[in-house]
């Protein structure tokens, strides 16, 4: 990646600024939404949705995952599968229990 040309790096820095603006706006949006006191389900859904967008922006541009090598993707996909299992299966055990 360090082999990129000067123009490309300059263009990347402009993207960084745009991402920053988007992150700042989304932060204000998510805080603003919390003052509406939506129903708990809707609030969780919306907050996590916004957080996911913000997280994706950071991962895609700041961590330049948008153009990364296959091996890194493979490692992260594997991790995400186990991450989901770690979140969902204990919860499944909680909801499906005897007595």
């Amino acid at each position: 990646m360090s082999g990129h040309s000067v123009e490309e790096i300059r263009r990347e820095t402009r993207v960084y600024i745009l991402v920053f603006v988007a992150l700042a706006v989304l932060t204000l949006v998510t805080v603003g939404v919390s003052y509406l006191h939506l129903s708990f389900g809707a609030a969780v859904g919306l907050a996590l949705f916004i957080a996911s967008i913000k997280g994706s922006l950071v991962a895609a541009f700041f961590m330049h995952l948008i153009s990364e090598r296959r091996l890194v993707y493979a490692v992260l996909i594997l991790t995400m599968i186990f991450f989901v299992a770690l979140i969902l299966l204990p919860l499944g055990g909680y909801h499906d229990r005897l007595g």
Binding site: T30, A43, A47, G55, V58, F62
Partner: peptide, 22 residues
């Protein structure tokens, strides 16, 4: 170190709404 730093930022992006806003 940048990748690590952004990851720490990313964790906060999820911590902030789950702890403060919900």
């Amino acid at each position: 170190i940048g990748l690590y730093w952004h990851f720490v930022d990313l964790v906060w992006i999820f911590l902030f709404p789950t702890l403060y806003l919900l």
